[in-house]
């Protein structure tokens, strides 16, 4: 690997690893779990570093479903695997499923927070993201969409994903989006894309001053 191949993530890993080895980082890898921030928010820097370093830890435990019950979780994991053409038990499907479970678990609190915005904050949110996006956050019940979608699929186990997609099935469309997002932000997905991360020249080519 030459200097140009060093991605920001690799630098971060090296920096964080060095700090931990030196025993002077003060980083608590469990800190991200204990942060008292609204759902979906992280403390900058330390939490992200902890998150990046976490896969290196040897005692990673299997995920415990937060929202779905065990049967639903297995069904969800199988669906994600089908959508990606992967084995349900092989990475990255388990981690994508765990992330989707976390997203759905958080959804009710996110919706509650969106609905409780003051008029001024709501106007600000609309200014930034548009009325449709804000309304979706306020009204879309992702938990209900998922529960109903899984129950419906239980009733027709042989139905193809393609036919559901063609019919405009809301649950399938939502899950497909999450599966794609999860896969292409996973280590396997980024490798498949041959993504090397942002990198910059130390000296701009053709510009010697």
């Amino acid at each position: 690997m030459d200097a140009e191949d060093l991605s920001r993530r690799v630098w971060l890993l090296r920096l964080g690893g060095g700090a931990l080895l030196a025993g002077c980082s003060g980083i608590d890898l469990g800190a991200a779990d204990g942060a008292k921030l609204p759902p979906g928010l992280y403390e900058p820097s330390i939490d992200h570093l902890a998150h990046v370093l976490r896969p290196a830890a040897k005692d990673v435990k299997p995920s415990v479903p937060l929202f779905f019950d065990a049967a639903e979780y297995r069904q969800l994991q199988a669906l994600v695997a089908r959508m990606l053409g992967e084995d349900p038990r092989t990475p990255p499907v388990p981690e994508i499923t765990a992330w989707i479970d976390l997203t759905v678990y958080d959804a009710a609190e996110v919706r509650r927070a969106a609905r409780s915005l003051s008029a001024e904050h709501r106007a600000l949110a609309v200014g930034f993201y548009g009325e449709a996006a804000v309304q979706e956050l306020e009204t879309r019940d992702v938990q209900e969409i998922c529960r109903a979608g899984l129950a419906r699929l239980n009733g027709e186990p042989s139905v193809s994903l393609e036919s559901l997609e063609a019919k405009g099935d809301v649950f399938i469309a939502w899950l497909r989006h999450r599966a794609i997002e999860g896969f292409y932000t996973s280590e396997a997905g980024l490798k498949e894309l041959d993504y090397k991360g942002h990198s910059f020249y130390n000296v701009s080519p053709g510009c010697d001053r």
Binding site: L84, G85, E162, E165, H177, I180, E192
Partner: peptide, 15 residues
Amino acid sequence: YGHAFGLRGFGRALR
């Protein structure tokens, strides 16, 4: 990978 959302289909063929 943003264009993936606009493509149809699933599985390895989509990837």
